Simulated scan of single mutants.
Amino acid sequence: MFPTNAWYVACTPDEIDGKPLGRMICGERIVFYRGEGGRVAAVEDFCPHRGAPLSLGYVENGQLVCGYHGLVMGCDGQTVSMPGQRVRGFPCNRSFPVVERYGFIWVWPGDPAQANPSTIHHLEWAESSEWAYGGGLYHINCDYRLMIDNLMDLTHETYVHASSIGQKEIDEAAPRTTVEDDCVVTARHMENIMAPPFWRMALRGNNLADDVPVDRWQICRFTPPSHVLIEVGVAHAGKGGYHADPQYKASSIVVDFITPETETSIWYFWGMARNFKPDDTALTDSIREGQGKIFAEDLDMLERQQQNLLAYPERNLLKLNIDAGGVQSRRIIDRLIAAECAPAAEPVTLIGGGAA
């Protein structure tokens, strides 16, 4: 299960340029498109006439036209017209709260009365010209919580990503996990080590020597429903590590927005934001390519892991000290789901009339 009263990344703006996009989010089939004035709209991907996917249609004058028999639907889910038909009695489709912000399109699949755009996490790097961002999208057949586990425990880098960002020192540096309200932070710091290949490339990209010892850090932050932002970087050893002056380090934020499709599949929006040489588009492309290959390595592992868990549902998994970040994140998710599933309080009738 997954929380539904939450904002999830549904797609990126380029995915709805010129045509509607059908995507399942938290078990809901939704079509996203640009309505009147270019504003993003999201309604059920279901034509009330014959059940065809509205995402196979097109947008005309800000309205969604079914590609099967020409039914026209408004952004509120109400049928506007249909050739040769009176549509007053047509059932209304469900519409979903949707917001375009920070270079992403966010959807609220739960109770629309609770949807408050101000609760979308502020992403400073998405609004500042001092930062550059490059990313992509993977569809992965796994439970969204497995991806959260993966990102909150980076010891797997030593093994899954041995040729890019992995190194034995990750295993040797114990992580520290803390919880504050609904935020889980797992931090690991490594001192006086040699940078792995990916970070040597990043050092060169920032005009820094890549063949000297560095201090390295990984600070993973989970916030519900399923977002993980990871501060990562290296600095020339002895210059202050995480707090080093920018002239001595290469640092970034790994962006991970995990959107459940079903119980066992996700849309994984990944990327990296950096605050050095933001105008260097070639560097952005190089980092995106390298990071894309790294995350592709996770994809196969997670899908095979999911297959194993489905094949052996009776097996209990171990919880070790390195799993603290994922365990704490799951506790927050479980609490949110329980709150959504809790029955509404019944009004209490008092003697003499009235209710409390």
Rank of each mutant, 00 (worst) to 15 (best):
T4K: 15
N5F: 00
A6E: 13
P13F: 01
D17Q: 13
D17I: 09
K19E: 04
I25L: 03
Y33I: 05
Y33V: 04
G37D: 10
V40I: 12
V40K: 09
A42F: 05
C47N: 05
P48L: 07
L54Y: 03
L56S: 13
Y58S: 11
Q63W: 01
L64G: 04
M73C: 09
C75N: 12
T79F: 07
S81V: 06
V87N: 01
P91D: 04
V98Q: 03
V99H: 00
E100P: 06
P109R: 04
A113Y: 01
A113S: 08
A115D: 02
L123M: 14
E124V: 12
E127R: 10
H139Q: 09
D143E: 14
Y144S: 06
L151V: 02
D153P: 05
I165L: 10
G166K: 04
A173C: 15
T178R: 05
T178H: 04
E191A: 12
R204A: 11
P225D: 02
P225E: 01
P225Y: 02
E231R: 14
E231W: 15
V232D: 11
V232T: 15
Y242P: 09
D245K: 00
W270P: 10
G271V: 07
N275Y: 05
F276T: 08
P278T: 03
Q306T: 11
L318M: 13
S329F: 00
L336D: 03
L336W: 00
A344C: 05
E346D: 11
L350S: 12
